[in-house]
Design a protein around this nucleic acid. Structure first.
Lengths: 231, 231
DNA sequence: CCAAAAGTGTTCTCCATACACCCATGC
DNA sequence: GCATGGGTGTATGGAGAACACTTTTGG
């Protein structure tokens, strides 16, 4: 029993890279908070904080998310653990990185947050970041881009009801590519994971597009039957 | 400064899932060690141990690997971090999981280890494992299988010089599929990442196959030019 | 010369790509 | 009726699946 205490222990934190999509400005955004304490006072940082005893890691990540940004109920996935002994000037602090995807339904990517000092930044117009947060953010971005093509996580960044074009824009924005309209539609419809709604877009100055929902039940079922999502 | 000490800290460990391939018995193996201490005394476990202060996580993983199994200089990649507060009956122990791939050149997957109590087990004939190690092992296996198809990590499990057939067997063994001989060759040659050697297999009672090496330099170069490895 | 595995040629099908076209709606 | 984006049809090439075939070597 005793030997678990024979070594000095690190402090343990979670940091959450929170992604949001702004379809108006066509940008992928990240939520950052302004640090008031030293070190790195006045700089921007990824939301995060210490893991409490008795908490699981995802619990800690969700708690910090809510405390610092007011965001709840989002897609959350463990990213990577950063443990370089010099990553925090205050001492030995190991951080488990998470990444979160928030839908504009739950939190508009251009609006202010409830929490003071929290703001969205476009991923290509980031301020200088505290600690090793640039690295964490890079890892998160790579993961998001990588995973987008083979897992249905993009829907987490869209409103529940979306048009095919919006879905396509999402892929184009995040991956930085241009996709052929026709072929994108064929591909996504071929997978048969969308439910067509009897509703159309509103407030556009041209033909309104049909709205769709991601059908998660059907998706799971198809996966069991051997489907592998790919876009 | 003081506030980094306001919370109780977890013990931090690394655990390494070590994969090896035995081409004779055609099995994917995992190296396990027999625990002598309680809890879980007498059960088998994934090699691992406490992270020391001043060490980075990969350093700790490599050190534990060498101390417990004698294995050095292998492919090592961070897997996932396991932090359930109940995962260790001794208290709060968070573990960063790693997975390692070892070549038969460096450590034959059927031989005994230098370290006492360390042994290879075929992944489909595992003993009961201590702690949450079954879960860690599953995550590692999924990662290995997933990554094998889109990253050139399979070569880490083969000797430096190998035949195309051996490479194919590797994929068949790990993925549990059967691959068409002709098509496999076409695919791997089409990617142009192997260097043909002026050497052939020895000691086989039939036509000897040509030996190849993975050409890492060429691979990196091709990746820069837009190649994406896939098998 | 024969068994056993190495290594090759070739057809067929399907799907990603490219691009032209028609449709619906607001102004 | 025309501009704007939504939505569809279809020819083409290339890659993967399937499978028959030839070559080389040890005994």
């Amino acid at each position: 029993m005793a030997f678990t205490y024979d070594y000095e222990r690190p402090a343990l934190t979670v940091d959450c890279v929170i992604f949001g999509l702004d379809l108006d400005s066509e940008s992928l955004n990240v939520m950052l908070i302004e640090r008031d304490l030293e070190p790195f006072g006045g700089m921007w940082a990824i939301p995060g904080g210490f893991v409490h005893k008795g908490e699981s890691l995802p619990q800690a990540a969700m708690r910090e998310l809510e405390e610092e940004t007011g965001i709840t109920d989002v897609f959350l996935e463990q990213l990577y653990t950063f443990g370089d002994p010099k990553r925090d000037p205050r001492g030995w602090v190991v951080s488990v990185g998470y990444f979160a995807l928030v839908s504009p339904d739950k939190h508009p990517a251009h609006a202010a947050t409830d929490a003071r000092e929290a703001r969205w930044f476009p991923v290509n117009k980031l301020p200088r970041l505290a600690f090793d947060h640039p690295e964490i953010l890079n890892v998160a971005l790579e993961r998001l881009r990588g995973k987008l093509t083979y897992a249905p996580i993009g829907f987490e960044l869209l409103p529940q009801k979306f048009t095919i074009k919006q879905l396509q824009r999402l892929y184009e924005i995040v991956l930085g590519t241009q996709l052929d309209n026709r072929n994108f539609r064929k591909k996504i419809f071929a997978m048969d994971v969308l439910r067509e709604l009897n509703e159309i877009q509103k407030g556009v100055p041209h033909r309104a597009a049909r709205l769709y929902k991601f059908d998660e039940k059907k998706y799971r079922q198809l996966v069991n039957e051997g489907l592998n999502f790919e876009l």
